[in-house]
Design a protein around this nucleic acid. Structure first.
Lengths: 251, 251
DNA sequence: TTTATAAACGTCATTTTTACGTTTATTTTT
DNA sequence: AAAAATAAACGTAAAAATGACGTTTATAAA
């Protein structure tokens, strides 16, 4: 988006179309795959009417692309702009926002109950996000221990996770969730978190170390008790240069 | 969709949301992967204003799911209702319907220029569709030799094809494009059409024959010159029973 | 100095893939 | 009726990848 556009065009929302973002963040210390959610709270006359969490999202503006909407939404919540982003599905069931809580919430907001949302997921590592004084009461939740979630966002998170599972097997997007310098075990732990499986460390290590784009650094972990492990980085450049589509039919 | 809904609810279109369908059909005789397109023709005072092809699609009704819209659109064009269907992407660039021809067309129609479309693809075999006296002038075109195409539908077809390429490597959707009885070479030809690669017949044949869900029939091809080949069928049942998610990390 | 432990390396059998050569069954031609 | 042509189908051996383990090593803590 350029400034010209921003200033000269009215920011006109499309009231029945939104983008919702599943922000996945991996916490390398707790080895937890997390989702960033924002608080939805409404009370009236002392009664708590709505108190749960939802995905971050917003309407699409008439002048912007869906990708731009997603980018904007992530930026507003986290300040980040260059994270891996994938549009994975549109959700448009007529009853998707029709629970009692959702209707109460919508009354207070400026959007239709019959809204179709285009869902994206983002990949980043938890440490890159500062949640100090964010207006939305955003909070990380482990994917395995989600709170009460509004709208149809639980379903959206589940489908994002399914897409991520498939995608991380075929593309090196796993590194988007890790810091620049990581250990082989970090990668394994993350795969195990995403896929919900156990992997043999010795075989996994061999496989990864043999990749030319997994580059050992002249550094080791510091501040760990026990043997500190070797740090590696992922070279996207090398990956892309050596990449040739592998048409392995695997049915 | 049930009759009750159909009769009691007004069919109210959401004017800025549509579903477009990329109908892939494989023609086993010509070994051609085809796309079903409908004619878009407009003239005024003897001048031909618009004359090209587009995907079949329609608005989403307020009371129906996106999946239902796609199913409805396919049925109206082909009469078919049980084909493999996949929602693969939403397209919502603000300029996606703003070429001169598109604007002329839209004037005559009942939808917004700022429409977001949710794109699906369907898989079937060309022979299952009868195009006799269809109102839309629908026609099959080889994916490799598409005509002049309106809106952003060329892009949509391209992305559908990319999704199909990836998907057919990991799931047995290839059989959705073939007749019930097929030869090993049919499957190979189809993979080659979709992926645009050449496959070693001897290795491919061995691989496929060893699958328990590829079942040899007591039948051979008839009416071919040269050695007639063995016919096989695909058993979805067996596939699903023996299936266990294979978490092969392939990056 | 010893101990505990996670990291890192090694081995071998099995399976899968790759890259070819050969045989077989059928139709068409002679 | 035999021969020729050809697509279908089968076979083999080397190389690569995987799976299932056992062993060694480097470090911090005891």
């Amino acid at each position: 988006m350029n400034l010209f556009k921003k200033e000269s065009m009215k920011l006109e929302k499309i009231l029945n179309i939104s983008v919702d973002c599943v922000v996945f963040g991996y916490d390398i210390n707790s080895k937890s795959l997390n989702v960033l959610l924002i608080k939805r709270y409404l009370e009236s006359k002392g009664d708590v009417l709505v108190d749960d969490y939802v995905l971050t999202g917003y309407h699409v503006y008439t002048h912007e692309t869906l990708d731009d909407t997603a980018t904007r939404v992530l930026k507003e919540l986290t300040g980040l702009t260059n994270q891996y982003k994938k549009q994975f599905k549109a959700f448009g069931n007529p009853d998707r926002l029709t629970s009692e809580k959702d209707l109460l919430w919508i009354e207070n907001e400026e959007f239709h109950s019959r809204t179709i949302t285009v869902a994206y997921y983002f990949l980043l590592n938890t440490e890159d996000v500062s949640l100090e004084d964010n207006k939305n009461n955003a909070k990380w939740f482990p994917l395995k221990d989600l709170p009460d979630i509004g709208f149809d966002h639980k379903k959206i998170i589940k489908e994002a996770h399914e897409d991520l599972k498939i995608k991380c097997l075929a593309e090196p997007i796993i590194f988007e969730l890790l810091p620049d310098k990581f250990t082989i075990n970090d990668v394994q732990d993350l795969y195990e978190s995403i896929l919900g499986i156990e992997i043999d460390n010795r075989n996994f290590r061999r496989k990864l170390i043999n990749k030319k784009y997994i580059i050992p650094l002249n550094e080791k972990q510091v501040g760990v008790s026990k043997k500190p492990s070797q740090l590696y980085m992922f070279s996207k450049d090398i990956y892309e240069k050596m990449f040739e589509k592998n048409y392995l039919i695997n049915i």
